[in-house]
Design a protein around this nucleic acid. Structure first.
Length: 302
DNA sequence: TTACACCTCGGTATCCGGAA
DNA sequence: TTCCGGATACCGAGGTGTAA
């Protein structure tokens, strides 16, 4: 019976009841008066009842129209709200989002992130160290940083994902025979560490100063792949976070020993800059997705 | 893939009826 | 009689379905 009746018909009807005038209703609905009149006539044909008494000075809703109005008014309002909400949600999954990731996490996160991106959303991944990522975030070059927790900086929001114990990484056939190594013992082995700006290096330097330990830094190498190559060639030991080797080739050629006394950790965070979030609604959803992926990955390993 | 026919929608111009 | 507002006629634009 209600064939060919759509939201436009109902909106016109509601406006006509409220204004008691087709002309005023047409203005409200941004239509010409004849067009609105046609809509009302189609609705009357569909309902099978007269909804308005026409007279020389406007129209008057019939009892049938008043009953219909009471029933559909809240439904149309709900429907219009739902449409607005759906449109807002859709805009959250559009556009390009640039994510900066520290190398020790990039390997395990990048592919999952790209695979999980929505159709209308493009996720671009760049790799660098925590210090660089902080600067890029503030400059607006990237939208999200997945990095080691940084000192509080104005405007940056950090969400802690997890604490990752640091481990000594050496060739599988050498190094300490136990699965744990004391921090003080690190002064006895040649180390391959990142430059002093590197977040893990800063954690190590800070702990060493506190304990009065002098670290033997044999090579300063910022690139993760290069560090691992140095280690495989027996040039020294790297110190990396748990999970850093996940997904890297030849990880079975390497051996990891957890550092204890004290156990040192790096805190992995997802950092965003609220100004970027306001400009790109998609940033919030991607940041949430990253947090979910990293936390899930953590559970899987355990 | 393109061209054509058909349909729907919304516009303007005009007519008509009723109230002041 | 005048003015206001709804109804009707007609036209153009755009979308859709179908056949070549």
């Amino acid at each position: 019976m209600l064939k060919n009746v759509d939201l436009k018909h109902l909106s016109c009807f509601l406006s006509a009841v409220e204004s008691s005038s087709f002309s005023h209703a047409a203005l409200i609905q941004d239509l010409s008066q004849p067009s609105l009149s046609t809509r009302i006539r189609q609705l009357e044909q569909a309902v099978g009842a007269t909804l308005f008494h026409r007279h020389g000075r406007g129209v008057e809703p019939t009892p049938a129209a008043r009953t219909l109005y009471e029933r559909i008014n809240p439904l149309v309002a709900q429907l219009q709200t739902a449409l607005v909400e759906a449109s807002a949600i859709d805009s959250m999954y559009q556009g390009e989002v640039v994510v900066g990731i520290v190398p020790t996490v990039a390997g395990r996160l990048s592919v999952k992130l790209a695979a999980g991106a929505r159709k209308k959303m493009k996720v671009r991944v760049v790799e660098s160290f925590s210090g660089h990522l902080q600067e890029w975030l503030l400059q607006g070059d990237i939208d999200i940083a997945v990095c080691t927790a940084m000192p509080r900086r104005r405007g940056i929001t950090q969400t802690l994902i997890r604490a990752e114990p640091l481990q000594l990484v050496g060739p599988a056939d050498s190094g300490p025979t136990r699965n744990e190594v004391r921090f003080r013992s690190l002064q006895e082995v040649p180390l391959i560490l990142g430059s002093p700006q590197h977040a893990i290096r800063q954690i190590l330097d800070q702990t060493a100063r506190r304990l009065g330990v002098t670290l033997r830094v044999q090579h300063e190498v910022d690139n993760l792949e290069a560090q691992l190559r140095f280690v495989r060639q027996g040039l020294g030991y790297a110190i990396l976070s748990e999970g850093a080797l996940t997904g890297t080739p030849q990880s079975n050629e390497l051996r990891m020993c957890r550092i204890i006394e004290p156990q040192i950790q790096r805190h992995l965070v997802v950092a965003t800059y609220p100004k970027n979030e306001a400009a790109k609604p998609a940033v919030k959803s991607v940041a949430a997705q990253i947090a979910r992926l990293l936390r899930t990955g953590n559970r899987n390993r355990c």
